[in-house]
């Protein structure tokens, strides 16, 4: 506090406000008997967040948190249902459904936790959206789904829920190393007229109030996520693009190499946490 050179009274006031703004860590996320690690020791000693990772769920208010405790209350489950229907629906030149080739969608348990994942065929990491469109083109002979379309959001949500309760686990070595470094650089690059980096908000000031927004550590384990503000479910890239846009920058495009690299680096920062998708946030 003394870096601000405050008088005693003023310092006490700030401490009081900060205490109010602390994430609520007295609650636990358990859905259908599955305990989900939303507070965890970081898997990496060199994680700049420090020892303790806290999911965004703990920073939200009681009402918003409650929506995630039961899938019947979770508004993201409309999307999950659509995804499950699409899984069974024949499409494209192959006339086959995802299920015809892949079997049950539970066969993809753990997949969401590994995203973005290296593709030998593409010679680059692909996000879950990109894997789906790759398989639609290569195997199903179907048109790609738009990134933020209800089909894509439904399918990513339905696949992600199969990884619920499984730890985030991305590859960052080998051919991924270059992408990881790029993501880290971008995380600390200040952008826009307001000149903020991701770290300005989610590392240096997590736990603080930015106006009415309670700043979290900025984790990706809940995506795709239903946001009350969006009145709908949205992808990782939509969220990241919005955060960059808020610095009054020309944001990186959805699906761009920049956002893929950021997704990889931010996922690594979350290793230790379990997938809790589809999450509900303000």
């Amino acid at each position: 506090m003394n870096r601000y050179a405050l008088g005693v009274g003023a310092a006490a006031m700030v401490v009081g406000a900060a205490a109010l703004a602390d994430p609520n860590t007295d609650v636990a996320l358990e859905i259908d008997g599955v305990a989900i690690k939303t507070i965890a020791a970081s898997a990496h000693a060199d994680n700049p967040i420090g020892d303790t990772l806290i999911s965004g769920w703990h920073y939200r208010n009681d009402e918003t948190r409650a929506l995630q405790l039961d899938d019947f209350d979770n508004p993201a489950f409309l999307a999950v249902e659509l995804g499950r229907e699409l899984w069974e629906a024949a499409d494209g030149a192959s006339g086959k459904s995802c299920a015809d080739c892949h079997g049950g969608i539970d066969g993809f348990a753990g997949l969401r936790a590994n995203m973005p994942k290296w593709s030998e065929a593409a010679g680059r990491p692909l996000t879950l959206e990109q894997w789906i469109n790759w398989s639609r083109k290569e195997h199903q002979g179907a048109e790609p789904w738009k990134w933020e379309s209800e089909q894509m959001l439904g399918m990513t949500a339905a696949i992600a829920v199969e990884s619920r309760g499984m730890p985030m686990d991305v590859q960052t070595d080998g051919p991924m190393a270059e992408w990881f470094e790029k993501g880290r650089d971008l995380y600390y690059t200040r952008t826009g007229q307001l000149d903020f980096a991701c770290a300005s908000c989610h590392e240096a000031n997590s736990g603080m109030m930015l106006r009415a927004d309670h700043l979290s550590q900025g984790h990706l384990n809940g995506f795709p996520t239903y946001r009350l503000k969006w009145q709908g479910i949205g992808s990782i890239h939509r969220r990241l693009k919005g955060c960059v846009q808020d610095t009054r920058a020309e944001p990186y495009a959805v699906g761009s190499d920049e956002l893929v690299a950021l997704e990889l680096y931010v996922s690594w920062r979350g290793e230790g946490l379990d997938i809790e998708a589809p999450a509900v946030r303000q």
């Binding site: 690059t189 200040r190 952008t191 826009g192 007229q193 307001l194 000149d195 903020f196 300005s200 240096a204 000031n205 846009q245 009054r248 920058a249 020309e250």
Partner: peptide, 24 residues
């Protein structure tokens, strides 16, 4: 510092088009 510089236009990156060359 987290505080933006309100009257500065140099050294900023990927500023949105309508704000290029304009201080806050």
């Amino acid at each position: 510092t987290f505080m933006p510089a309100f009257y500065r236009i140099d050294g900023l990156k990927i500023v949105r088009k309508e704000s290029v060359g304009k201080p806050i």
